[in-house]
Design a protein around this nucleic acid. Structure first.
Lengths: 217, 217
DNA sequence: GTAAAATGTTAGACAAGACTAACAAAATTT
DNA sequence: AAATTTTGTTAGTCTTGTCTAACATTTTAC
């Protein structure tokens, strides 16, 4: 059995593995807001449970079992977010916090019902893929807006940050998934971008924002 | 702040207070499936938080603050049960377990949304009243079926047990809330009752079942 | 290629929430 | 009303998940 705390460690490991390839204890502890020795001893514990490969002074890796377990938690998280938005009328900026708690509910039925009511969605409200029932996730390789150049026309496919602050920022600018964006200018000094879309023209976005926006052609 | 564990103690105290008036440590610990000393020390802890009145060797009482806190947890539980049945299509026998977990979610918005989507229901799928936003509960005094006599005609208003086993038993006999029941006979020896309703006639219910069925005229 | 910085580990403490064993008080029986 | 049973309490232990302080190893900088 995996405790709620352990579930959060596994989820963090999977997220960090995506972002950075390999995971070290420092990043893990920062991500979870705990101290290094705490993370360290948890890694040993998860290693005993065959969820993590742990060797002293080496980067951390999830085992296949660990990946599956983590994937299934992320599945529950993302199904929940989708349910909250589509079936309960929440905004995409409100759902992360709630899903963070509901993902730990122990009931297959509950999430299967959500899945069915939603029509077996493949993506959550932030454009992230929903892992399948085996915890497997399709890793679609979007580009960040940062990588686009002047004149490019792209579609907003996903955001890499689900915090309420960031999503409210996007709401205020009517930036939604699927929006067609045209890059008008890129400021060489700070990499901020001027983009046009829908009714809006010449909206300026800082590089910090642009690198959180994933786009397709 | 009240921990998940503390919430469960408060809920147990409120339930037991209804059933029996006053609560002792033995009943509390049996109800929660823990040992007496554990319950005892938690009572001291809750007393320090002004949620419980604790005096050595005296019965336990919730303070007003304790009653409100417990009422609000029960509110979350029952709203959830109603949501699961009405909006997600679960059977009334499936929802207790899930609600037991969801009641601990910390999000006003989540339960307010449920409440609104359900149209501000006053009762849960088992006929129990849903406490208001101040944790106050209307205590409607139904009678148990046990108290009825031959020839009485009553309506099933609520059940006092939400276990899957019991509710499956009722499902198998098509006994639903609102069903009009006619008492055909009462066996003096074991108090079992023969009742007729809907398409069914002469269904025999043991006293153990009858005392869990609450009815109105 | 050594010194400094960053990163990782060990050891020991602590709080929450559970337990058992032993003792104390209250209630019940006779 | 004394003996017995039931109920309640105290004391001390354990596990989980956290911490700090001290130490060890790796990496980076010069």
């Amino acid at each position: 059995m995996v405790s709620l705390t352990e579930e959060n460690y596994l989820k963090a490991l999977l997220s960090l593995a995506k972002e950075k390839g390999e995971v070290n204890v420092t990043d893990l502890s920062k991500h979870l807001g705990i101290k290094m020795p705490t993370a360290n001893s948890m890694m040993k514990k998860l290693a005993e449970k065959k969820l993590v490969v742990y060797e002293s002074y080496k980067p951390l890796r999830l085992t296949e079992k660990g990946k599956k377990t983590a994937g299934l938690i992320i599945r529950k998280h993302r199904l929940t977010e989708m349910f909250l938005v589509d079936k309960m009328g929440f905004g995409w900026e409100q759902v992360h916090e709630i899903a963070e708690q509901i993902e730990h509910i122990h009931s297959q039925d509950f999430f299967e019902k959500m899945d069915a009511l939603l029509g077996y969605p493949k993506f959550d409200p932030h454009g992230s893929p929903i892992p399948d029932k085996n915890g497997k996730m399709e890793w679609i390789s979007y580009q960040t807006l940062t990588h686009c150049g002047v004149g490019d026309v792209v579609y907003l496919a996903a955001v890499t940050n689900s915090s309420a602050e960031f999503l409210k920022f996007l709401n205020a600018r009517e930036l939604k998934l699927g929006t067609r964006l045209r890059i008008v200018a890129v400021e060489p000094f700070d990499k901020s971008m001027t983009i046009s879309y829908d009714g809006r023209s010449d909206e300026v976005l800082s590089a910090l924002v642009c690198e959180k926006l994933l786009v397709t052609l």
